[in-house]
Design a protein around this nucleic acid. Structure first.
Length: 219
DNA sequence: ACCCAGGGTCATA
DNA sequence: TATGACCATGGG
C-alpha cells in the first residue's frame, strides 16, 4: 500500500507541481476558510474572506463581536450563510474558551481532534483541514476527491467510514506534515482537472496507474 | 437552464 | 445504523 501511495504522490507532483497550501495568510484564516468551504466552491469562499478582511481584523474575538446578521451578510457569497455564521461563531467561542490559538497549540493531536469534533458544525474533514493546515499536525484529510481517486485506482471501495480511510492512509504513510499537506492539495488539484479525452493528458498520467499484483513467491 | 462545489446536522424509520 | 431533507451562492 505504501509503495502505491508513494507512486501516486510522485505522479501527482510531477503532473501539477507543488500546490503550497493552504491558501491563507495565517492559521485563523485557515480555520475560517475550512468552515466556509464546506460543500462550496473555493472561489466563493475567497469573496467571503475578502469581505471579512476588508471590514475587520481576522480574529476570534472580532468575529464574535459582529451581529449574526452582519456576519452573515459578509460571508453571503460562500453560501449557507446562516448555518456558517453559527458554525464560525461556535469555532470562535471554542478558541476564546481555550485561551487562544497559542494555548491550543500545546495540546496533543488526539485531544485537539476530539475537541474540534465536539464543536457543532465541525465534522471530521473540517477538523482535519484545521489540524493539518492550521496546527500543522500529521493528519491525512479524507474528502470526496480522495475517495474518488483511490476507488478509481482500485485501492479502496470509496464508501468506507471516514476513520477507516484516515487510518488506512496514515498507517501506510510516514507521519510527515509536509507530505500530508502536499498530498491532499494535489488530490484536490487533480480533481479539478478536466480530462480532455486525449491520451497523455495530465489527468490520465495519474489515473492510468496499473495496480501491480504481488508475485506469489515474493513473500 | 442546469449542475455542482475542498460538509455537516438533524429528524425519521 | 442508515437514509433523506436541508442549508444557498456563484461559476461553468
Amino acid at each position: 500500500m505504501r509503495r502505491i501511495l508513494e507512486t501516486v504522490y510522485s505522479r501527482l507532483l510531477k503532473a501539477y507541481g507543488p500546490q503550497n497550501w493552504w491558501p491563507a495568510e495565517e492559521p485563523f484564516e485557515v480555520m475560517v476558510g475550512a468552515v466556509l468551504t464546506q460543500n462550496t466552491a473555493w472561489l466563493n469562499v475567497e469573496k467571503a474572506i475578502s469581505n471579512l478582511k476588508q471590514m475587520h481584523e481576522l480574529d476570534a474575538a472580532e468575529l464574535l463581536d459582529l451581529g449574526d446578521d452582519e456576519l452573515a451578510e459578509l460571508i453571503r457569497p460562500s453560501g449557507y450563510f446562516n448555518v456558517k455564521t453559527r458554525r464560525l461563531k461556535n469555532l470562535c467561542q471554542w478558541i476564546i474558551e481555550a485561551g487562544g490559538l497559542a494555548a491550543l497549540s500545546g495540546t496533543d493531536t488526539a485531544t485537539l481532534r476530539e475537541s474540534l469534533l465536539s464543536i457543532n458544525g465541525i465534522g471530521p474533514e473540517t477538523a482535519d483541514d484545521i489540524l493539518l493546515y492550521a496546527f500543522e499536525r500529521p493528519v491525512f484529510v479524507i474528502d470526496v476527491y480522495t475517495r474518488r481517486l483511490f476507488s478509481r485506482l482500485g485501492l479502496i471501495r470509496g464508501d468506507e467510514d471516514y476513520e477507516t480511510l484516515r487510518h488506512l492512509f496514515e498507517s501506510a504513510l510516514p507521519d510527515n506534515v509536509p507530505l500530508y499537506n502536499e498530498y491532499h492539495a494535489l488530490i484536490v488539484r487533480h480533481a479539478k482537472e478536466k480530462c480532455s479525452q486525449a491520451r497523455n493528458c495530465r489527468h490520465c498520467q495519474v489515473e492510468s496507474i496499473t495496480v501491480q499484483h504481488r508475485p506469489f513467491n515474493a513473500g
